Amino acid sequence: MADTARDRITKFFQKNIANRVARQMPFQTLLETTGRKSGQPRTTPLGGRRVGDEFWFVSEFGDKSQYVRNIMADPNVRLRLHGRWHRGVAHLLPDDDAQARMRMLPRYNNVGVRTFGTNLLTIRVDLID
């Protein structure tokens, strides 16, 4: 599916404004992946919920998101929760009902996903430490 103009505008705003600000907030949840081309760490602010040793979230653009493509290349990630970094392994769950999953996640974190999401994809990170 080709990106719509709305998708391109949303991605531009997130990459160049919202994510840059959110990364600076000390208690913002951050996902760190390894760039599939550069091999460099890439951080993405996101929302979700920790349940035991798992962290659940929904990607609004699914496999069109750069961080999802990075996970596909290397599922080993780091996740910053409440200011502390944890190692983990990310799992893409295309068969999970992302709409139902979002009802289990914090509402304020899912506003953007609900508003702009066009290719929802559930992701679970199994936390190692």
Rank of each mutant, 00 (worst) to 15 (best):
F61D: 08
Q99N: 10
V89E: 11
D63N: 09
T115Q: 09
D74L: 01
N110E: 12
M102I: 11
R114D: 01
D97L: 14
G39T: 07
L127H: 03
M102H: 11
H82Q: 15
T4Q: 13
G83R: 02
M72P: 03
V77F: 04
V111W: 02
R50K: 14
A90H: 00
S38L: 11
K64F: 06
R8F: 13
D97T: 11
T122W: 07
M102V: 08
V113M: 00
G48L: 02
D126R: 01
M104R: 13
R103Q: 15
F27A: 06
L92P: 05
V21G: 04
I9M: 10
L92E: 06
A73F: 02
Q40Y: 06
N119A: 14
Q66I: 01
Q66E: 07
T33C: 13
W56Y: 14
I9Y: 10
L46T: 00
N16T: 11
R8P: 15
L121E: 02
R20L: 15
N19A: 08
K37Q: 09
N110L: 08
G47R: 01
F55A: 00
A2S: 13
Q24S: 07
F57H: 06
I128Q: 14
Q14M: 04
F57M: 09
H86W: 14
A5Y: 10
R49P: 00
L31A: 06
L92Q: 08
T115W: 09
D129V: 02
S59A: 15
R101L: 14
P45A: 07
D95Y: 12
G83N: 06
F27T: 09
R124V: 11
M25Y: 15
V51L: 03
G88D: 09
M72G: 08
A100G: 11
I128V: 14
T44W: 05
M1G: 12
A90E: 01
